[in-house]
Amino acid sequence: MSKKTIEVVVNGRTHRAEVPARRMLSDFLRDDLFLTGTKRGCETGVCGCCSVLIDGEVIKSCLSLAVHADGHEVTTIEGLAVDGVLHPVQEAFVNHGGLQCGYCTPGFIMTTVAMLNDNPNPTEDEIRHGLNGNLCRCTGYVGIVESIKAAAEKLRGN
């Protein structure tokens, strides 16, 4: 089995690990670092449950090999809250019906964090277009859109 040693900063902590070349980034996060908030929902790169940030940009960790994260900074859902205080996007998803079963939620939240970094005041159309890479079966997207509007407002206020 072909293995590689990688050094990657995940949620602010540096990890050195020897990983099989075929290890997906999503599996590395889940199985090696026990960060199971990043989910697997499909094999076709469509559902977005595995979305994480690499150097601040949102990607699908199931479309990336762990070795590709070598030398980069990864942020997962577990890295958003600071000292137990929810990130405004997390808080908004709680309060505005942004989640039900919760399985797609980490992916939507990571996508939202990146979206609002690029565009702090998105229109509803921009929000919906920006969610093209994430699927939710529970909410009908209304609660998610409301959550993102609320989070954007709060983040702009800060």
Binding site: R30, T36, E78, Q90, V94, L99, G102, T105, I109
Partner: peptide, 19 residues
């Protein structure tokens, strides 16, 4: 009323079978 398990879900801490 937000779901009573909403916070563990937004933190990525809710445990699903595959986790």
């Amino acid at each position: 009323t937000p779901q009573i398990n909403a916070i563990e879900k937004v933190l990525g801490k809710a445990v699903y079978s595959a986790d």
